[in-house]
Computed example of a mutant assay.
Amino acid sequence: MYFRYFIILLLLTGCVKFTPQYLSGSAYDRSLILFNEGMMAEAREIAFSVKKGEPEYKAARDLLSQIDRLAPKFAERHAALGEEYERVGLYSLAAKEYAAALEFDPDNRIISKKLEAVEQIQSSIQTEELTTANQEALANVHYKKGIAFLNSKQFAKARDEFALVMKLIPRYRDTEKLLTVTTKEINEAINIHLKNGIDYFQKEELELAIKEWKIVLELDPYNKTAADYKARAEAILEKMKDIQEQR
């Protein structure tokens, strides 16, 4: 009983290779079943296996001739469908149709080139998708590091991390806003430490002044004011050291 239901299910789902007729049939019978189901390539292969001298050899040869006559038409249909899929950007479906066309017309160089072209496009798309996924993952790592540095008030490091995120993906989450906040914090810190350094310098506390300007230069390596003051303070310290050594 269960076997009958199984056979009915197979018939309904179109699994012709599991039907009793197919399983118990001769090579010619199987090729004819496949031919009637439109499975030309497989039908041709099985019909071709019928050897000369076998009872159904002539019938198999007639079927092969019929397949060969119909093959170009089927190839054209699959190729045309492939072109339609390719035109609307459905490259995986286009590739399947071109491949099906080549089963009917294996020597068709035009279809072969079209298949090769869409496969290259597919490969490029997959590579691009993979690259994008990698960029997003990397951007997320730098984004989280930037947040951590910002929360711990390590503004220069936070700025560098957010800048990397922007380079990878320009509009990643709220990175642009966070970079603006970080830059503002850095500018405020620069002004504070620059002023502190000048105050120490005027009080002749040169070593403390130099420490303040070093902080400024860590935040802004190209800050000319801090660099000039630091150089002057270091020169004065060097002269004072020479004077002390001469005493």
Rank of each mutant, 00 (worst) to 15 (best):
T132D: 09
C15Q: 12
A148Q: 12
E176H: 06
T13L: 15
A79Y: 02
D107A: 13
V88Y: 09
F149Q: 03
F162Q: 01
Y91E: 00
I198R: 00
R69P: 02
M166E: 13
Q66I: 14
K224L: 08
A59D: 10
K230G: 01
I111P: 00
Q21P: 05
E185I: 05
K241F: 06
K17D: 00
M166F: 07
Y85C: 03
L10S: 09
V141K: 04
P106D: 13
D174V: 09
I243K: 12
E205P: 01
K167W: 08
D105A: 13
F155C: 02
Y143L: 05
I215K: 02
I198C: 00
L178C: 03
D174Y: 09
S92L: 06
E129Y: 06
L219E: 04
L206W: 06
E238H: 12
I125W: 06
F35W: 07
K51T: 11
L115F: 07
K144S: 10
Q122C: 05
Y222H: 10
L194D: 00
A163W: 08
F162A: 01
K211N: 01
D220N: 11
P20L: 12
Y85R: 05
R232N: 07
A158Q: 05
D228S: 03
G25F: 03
L9Y: 13
S31N: 04
I210L: 02
G38S: 09
K167S: 15
N196I: 08
V16I: 15
Q244D: 15
A117R: 04
G53T: 13
G82N: 03
I243L: 15
S124C: 06
E54F: 14
E116G: 03
A27K: 01
S49H: 10
R247Q: 15
A80N: 14
Q246I: 14
L208C: 04
R61W: 10
W213D: 00
K211V: 00
D68T: 13
A158C: 10
P221L: 09
M1Y: 07
L10I: 12
K114I: 06
D29V: 04
M166P: 03
L63A: 02
I8F: 11
K52A: 15
D29K: 01
R4P: 00
A158H: 07
G14H: 09
L150Y: 14
V50E: 02
N223W: 10
V88E: 10
L11M: 14
Y91P: 01
R30T: 01
A71V: 11
E245M: 15
E129N: 10
D68L: 11
S24W: 10
E54Q: 15
S65P: 04
L90K: 04
R69S: 13
D228R: 02
G197L: 01
K230H: 07
E42M: 03
